[in-house]
């Protein structure tokens, strides 16, 4: 590990020895990985393998039993979510739960109200609604169709997922973690979101994607991390990883059914 540090630049995110248990269940166990700036890391693994728990640990929604999370060399282990966001990490949720009775664009007011955005805009928020509408347009809410003004409760799943993505983007993060953004979406919907993520990557954002849709993921991922029972069973380039017998056993075995 030390040797790699010398050659490459310091990683944006470094997770070492991370462990989390819930009662008897070990959700994440002794996990180590690094993520250089500007890369897109795919995290895959069967259901219940601890992917969401990993996201929760990094973003401060749960505290680890052991281990360390460093972001830009700073120890952020056990920080509360709002401080983690302040450092520049934002996330989406696997199960989207917007403010249903608010219009879609008003859903973005909350992240736009956060101290991080205030700091980055130099204390001038401007008109948050206008910023929100622009953001929604960026993630594919057609402006002339007035989807942005519809109540979030009336929107189909595809738009809710985009809204979730927009919420994470509103915080202007350096690292953005997407927890199964594509689940529950049709092929066409996925195809329309992929370019948005590619664009984020071009802007230099670092991204972690938790995904079950391997084909789409492998097209855009720089590297893949495979979890099973909370343990890292493989890491590396997508093509290499899928050749590993452990991964075939754990992952493809369960996908077959």
């Amino acid at each position: 590990m030390g040797g790699r540090d010398m050659t490459a630049q310091a990683p944006l995110l470094r997770v070492s020895n991370l462990t989390k248990t819930f009662g008897g269940v070990t959700a994440v166990s002794n996990l180590d990985f690094e993520l250089p700036e500007g890369k897109l890391l795919g995290v895959i693994g069967p259901n219940g393998s601890g992917k969401t728990t990993l996201v929760n640990l990094i973003t401060g929604f749960t505290r680890p039993v052991a281990g360390r999370i460093e972001f830009r060399g700073r120890d952020v282990t056990g920080w509360p979510p709002h401080r983690v966001v302040g450092e520049g990490i934002s996330r989406t949720f696997q199960m989207v739960r917007p403010f249903y009775q608010l219009p879609a664009y008003k859903n973005l007011i909350v992240p736009l109200y956060s101290p991080r955005v205030k700091k980055l805009t130099g204390g001038r928020y401007g008109d948050r609604s206008a910023v929100a509408l622009d953001l929604l347009e960026e993630v594919g809410f057609e402006r002339d169709a007035y989807v942005s003004y519809k109540k979030a409760g009336a929107l189909p799943q595809g738009y809710l997922k985009r809204l979730e993505l927009a919420k994470a983007m509103a915080l202007r993060p350096d690292l953005i973690i997407l927890d199964e953004l594509f689940s529950g979406l049709s092929l066409a919907e996925v195809a329309s979101i992929v370019p948005i993520i590619e664009k984020l990557k071009h802007q230099g954002k670092t991204i972690i994607m938790i995904e079950h849709r391997l084909k789409e993921l492998f097209r855009i991922a720089d590297g893949v991390l495979v979890l099973n029972y909370g343990r890292k069973i493989a890491e590396g380039l997508a093509a290499e990883v899928m050749k590993s017998p452990a991964v075939r056993d754990a992952y493809l075995g369960s996908e077959g059914d």
């Binding site: 819930f22 009662g23 929760n56 929604f61 749960t62 949720f93 696997q94 199960m95």
Partner: peptide, 10 residues
Amino acid sequence: SHQKELEERI
């Protein structure tokens, strides 16, 4: 209490 731990399930 184990409340807190259970609540965090997402």
